[in-house]
């Protein structure tokens, strides 16, 4: 009897402290966005952004590969070709990153970044065009994400009980340092979600202490107000202007 109780007790404790499963993000998801940039007050469609997930297995572990690709539309390729890839390899259960990679090619300017996460230590390698490779090691908090996994992590948060103006803090790794990010819940709005139709969405403002983002409440994300929390619309304000990503197609959700 004691053994049975011990077994049941251990099983209960294990289940109680097991990492929370992540029902929102699964492998095989593909979200396609039309990226527009504000030119003299008019939104001009420039590129297609594809966010996809897939399972990647090594001999020891299984990871969720979160990928974000940006490609300019063919009509722009002769003038300013962009081919960017942002990737994160995360734990499928808690979305904790192990490897983050960024490879950009923007009109001939290239940059490659690699961040490996080992416990609370991050090793970063950065290689810019015509510059020698630089390496850095720095420590981070236990819940620090990279930029891509942060976007997916946001989808696992429960906004249904949040009040307008309520904030939540996250930490991300950006430009070889740890940067605090604040998410502010701004209420619900109905927006067009591509092939999903009109959807009521949670409107979230993303603020970070970095020069990469500009303005107060100018970087916004609308997540469908359902269990999947699909990003339906993203508006951003960066030093070189403003733009938006509009969801055109969501498959495998």
């Amino acid at each position: 009897m004691k053994r049975l109780l011990l077994c049941l007790g251990t099983a209960f404790l294990l289940s109680a402290f097991a990492p929370q499963s992540n029902p929102a993000i699964k492998a095989g998801e593909k979200l396609v966005y039309a990226g527009s940039y504000n030119m003299s007050g008019l939104m001009t469609q420039l590129a297609q952004v594809t966010m996809s997930t897939e399972t990647v297995a090594t001999s020891k572990n299984t990871y969720l590969h979160l990928s974000c690709e940006l490609s300019t539309y063919s009509k722009w390729d002769s003038f300013f070709k962009i081919r960017d890839i942002y990737e994160s390899y995360v734990n499928p259960t808690n979305l904790k990153p192990s490897l983050y990679k960024r490879s950009i090619d923007e009109g001939g300017y290239t940059k490659k970044e690699k961040y490996t996460f080992k416990g609370n230590t991050v090793n970063s390698t950065v290689k810019k065009r015509n510059r020698p490779e630089t390496q850095k090691t720095f420590t981070i908090g236990g819940s620090t994400q990279d930029v891509i996994s942060m976007l997916y992590k946001v989808r696992t948060l429960d906004f249904s009980k949040m009040k307008e103006g309520q904030t939540q803090s996250l930490m991300i790794v950006f430009d070889e340092k740890q940067v605090p990010v604040t998410l502010k819940y701004m209420g619900k709005e109905t927006v067009n979600a591509g092939n999903l139709g009109q959807k009521p969405c949670y409107k979230i403002s993303i603020g970070a202490k970095t020069d990469a983002l500009r303005g107060k409440d100018k970087n916004l994300i609308w997540l469908t107000a359902d269990a999947k929390k699909i990003p339906a619309l993203l508006k951003f304000s960066i030093p070189v202007g403003t733009g938006q990503l509009v969801l055109t197609s969501a498959t495998g959700i």
Binding site: V56, T58, S59, K60, N61, K101, S103, K114, K118
Partner: peptide, 15 residues
């Protein structure tokens, strides 16, 4: 990049 990443993850696991 994907192949490289797989190798890098294996190396990371080895550490």
């Amino acid at each position: 990049t994907k192949k490289e990443a797989q190798k890098e993850l294996e190396e990371l696991e080895g550490l």
